[in-house]
Structures are given as C-alpha cells and as structure tokens.
Design a protein around this nucleic acid. Sequence first.
DNA 1: GCACATTACATGCATCCGCATCTAATGCAA
DNA 2: TTGCATTAGATGCGGATGCATGTAATGTGC
Lengths: 128, 128
Amino acid sequence: MDEEFVVGTWHYVLAKHAKAMCALERELGDKHGLGASEFEVLDRMVRHDKKLRLQELCDEVHLSQSALSRVVARLEKGGLVTRGVCDADRRGVFVCITDEGRARHTEALPTQRAVLAGVFSDTPALTG
Amino acid sequence: MDEEFVVGTWHYVLAKHAKAMCALERELGDKHGLGASEFEVLDRMVRHDKKLRLQELCDEVHLSQSALSRVVARLEKGGLVTRGVCDADRRGVFVCITDEGRARHTEALPTQRAVLAGVFSDTPALTG
DNA sequence: GCACATTACATGCATCCGCATCTAATGCAA
DNA sequence: TTGCATTAGATGCGGATGCATGTAATGTGC
C-alpha cells in the first residue's frame, strides 16, 4: 500500500467533496429550496421509483439513522414525501415521494448536474 | 462531459469521504483526543514547519474562516498551538505549533494513515 | 404465554459548521 | 490629516449532524 498515493487520494477526495458540497448547498438552496441531503434523498426515491423503508435509504445515503430520520421529517413537512407505517412490520416506516417531490427533483436535477460537471470537469478517469 | 462519469465520480467521493471522515473522527477522537479538523490543522503546521498566518491555513484546510478560527482556538486551549499577533500587520494572527502539538501529531499520524489505508485500499489509481 | 434481547425509528443533547456581522487595523484618495 | 473602503480575524446565531437514549414492535428461549 503506497502511503503517498493513499494520502494523495484522500486530499483529492477532501478537496472535491468540499468544493462540490459547498456549491451544491448554495445552488440547490438558493434556486430550489433544497439542502444537499434533501436532494440526495429525493434522488434515491426517484431512482428506485417505489416506496422505501427508512432503513433502505439509510444504506444508500451517507447519513446516520438519526440524521436521515430528520431529513425525511423536513421533506415531509415540505410536502415532498409522505411517511406511512409499514403493515408487515409496524416498527417500520415507508417513505413515498409525492408528485410535488418529483417535480422539485426534476427541477433541481439540472442544477446538480451543472455543479458536478463544473467541479469534476478536470478529473481524470479511474483505472478500473 | 460524460454525465454518467461525473455522477459516478461524485458518488465515489461521497462514499469515501463519509467512510474516511467517520472513521477518522472516531479513531482520532478515541485514541488521541483530536477531531479530524484539529488533526488536519496540526498536520499542515508540521508540514510547513513554521508559524503560519491564519489566512494561509485557510487556503489549505477545507473550512470556512470562522470554523478555522474556532479550530485554532480549541487547539490553543488544549496547548497544542499558540497564537501570536503579527508585528507587520497587527490584524493578522500567527499560529505556532507547540512541542506538545508536535508530539500529539506524531502520535496520531499512524492512526490516520491506518484509517486511510483501510478506506482507500481498494481504490484504483487515477490516470494522469 | 412470559420475560428478555433486538430492531426500527424518534428525540434530547452537545458539537461543529457556515453565514452574516462586528471590531480593529490597514490602505488609499483628496 | 481626514474620511472611507478594505482586510484579518472573532463572534452571534441558526441549522445540521452524530451519539446516546427512549419508545414501541418484533423475535426468541423456556
């Protein structure tokens, strides 16, 4: 394991993450009233195109269980998703994206893509 | 600009950042009483091996000016760095790592390297 | 069936962050 | 010099996060 390489990669990740996250927070917030986490959750919902257990979302977004719980609560308050109890396991919660949630996602997607394109335009490809 | 590639790279950065950051926070915190940001600042100080203006540090660590100000305040309270006014420009502040700060960094460095090695061990190289 | 461990999610709490703003020092133009 | 813009850093504030814990539902051993 080349230590130089590992540290270099870490610095790269730190820099890109900071730049992209900061820009996303600003752009998505100003233009669409969404935080980066909120958008991320909406994005997952749209991709899966079905109601998801909170736990399933937790595996995909990089948030703690408690943070995700609150993000979903915020989205629900904004009318972008609904929460419903799971009949099979009544501890569980299903999250379901609303039409307004889909619309907001559709509206915000180009903004996200533009930000990411700007940040990663100079990135070399990964050798698989 | 291949959209697929950009989004893929972003997901990679998100995943690695979350995993590494979380592990660093835990390991550095438990074993050495340092946060990731604190370690980052100490690391920059050691690398430069001289007293730095707060502003110079700000260019290197991915923190807002206010966050950096507070990280340095915490480090000072812990005796790991000292702050001194800059004679040339008395608005400026010089940050200077202490012997204890160096010792703590030396002690924590292997922990950081181990965490990063674990996280990035499966990472392919970047094509220059 | 009953007691206890476990799981899914919610919430109290402390911490850290960024933004906006404040203060003090510097630079500059007239 | 005087007045104003700018810069360096500190700080008030609101918001988001993670950890620990709480609550309710489910699973398990006996």
